[in-house]
């Protein structure tokens, strides 16, 4: 009885906290019909925001894939001085407020920042442009891949790599034939989470974006602008699309995990 009550309470909390807002977003987006929602998405500024979001994610996710694997590989397979510091640094983006994650780039590369005058002299734009958006997104989403991989790789230990070495495999052969296949499912799952966050990031991106419509607005920023201008239909339509991207990502992750589970099951 008590267990059922607890289960019921948990489901209720889940419904109120997660399901209801999601339903509300889609309901609000479609309240005035499909045509209005689709028109809001097909509007040039909205399309620009969507393509910018996809572009930023398309750059940031591969960067974090490589960086995350490299960091996890170093931390899990080798001992070196400063290892603890590196572990802490990997988690830093989670601990720091996204506003600060954006602000540091403005401080470094903004017009009045440390490197601002030099950049201006050379005609380079980082803040309020694509490079700034990518930097902020990379910083905020860095931990996803690394933190998914580190515990798994630590758990797997170094013995298989050592065995590969005694059998004559070089460093790259060992990585691609032994290490990478052992982490592939966790890696995919980390990449998908990283991607979801890269597309949805608001705080850090908001600081470095400058909110130039059609140029430096990503989808989350576009939603905010529309909302502030009382264009609710448009705001919710774009928000619904963003939510849909997140749901697809989560669905893909769940599917991958099932596939991984089935493969492990077939092997075990």
């Amino acid at each position: 009885m008590a267990r059922r009550l607890a289960l019921l309470a948990a489901l209720l909390v889940l419904a109120v906290l997660f399901l209801l807002p999601l339903v509300a977003v889609f309901a609000e987006a479609l309240r005035r019909g499909w045509d209005v929602a689709l028109a809001a998405i097909a509007e040039p500024d909205a399309l620009a925001a969507i393509s910018l979001t996809l572009l930023v994610a398309a750059i940031a996710v591969p960067v974090n894939l490589l960086g995350g694997v490299a960091a996890a590989w170093c931390i899990a397979k080798f001992d070196f001085p400063g290892k603890r510091l590196l572990v802490t640094l990997v988690e830093l983006p989670f601990a720091v407020s996204p506003v600060i994650s954006g602000l540091v780039w403005v401080l470094l590369f903004g017009a009045h920042g440390w490197l601002g005058p030099w950049l201006q002299a050379h005609g380079l734009r980082i803040v309020f442009a694509l490079p700034g958006l990518v930097l902020a997104t990379v910083f905020v989403t860095f931990p996803f891949v690394a933190r998914t991989l580190i515990p798994l790789m630590q758990d797997q230990g170094r013995e298989e790599e050592e065995a590969a070495a005694t059998l004559g495999a070089g460093g790259l052969q060992t990585f691609f034939r032994v290490t990478l296949p052992n982490i592939r499912w966790a890696l995919l799952s980390g990449v998908l989470l990283c991607n979801a966050r890269a597309m949805g990031e608001f705080g850090a991106v908001s600081v470095v974006s400058g909110h130039v419509r059609g140029q430096t607005n990503t989808m989350p920023l576009h939603v905010e602008i529309l909302y502030n201008e009382y264009q609710f239909a448009g705001a919710f339509a774009v928000a619904a699309l963003l939510a849909l991207l997140a749901l697809v990502t989560l669905g893909a992750k769940a599917l991958l995990e099932r596939l991984a589970g089935r493969q492990a099951g077939a092997a075990g």
């Binding site: 298989e160 050592e162 065995a163 590969a164 070495a165 005694t166 004559g168 070089g170 052992n182 092997a267």
Partner: peptide, 20 residues
């Protein structure tokens, strides 16, 4: 280095490649 020695090594817990 180990990979150039051509020495056969059998690990205590075998260290077989689990995905192969």
């Amino acid at each position: 280095p180990a990979r150039a020695r051509g020495v056969g090594f059998v690990f205590q817990h075998y260290a077989l490649f689990r995905h192969m």
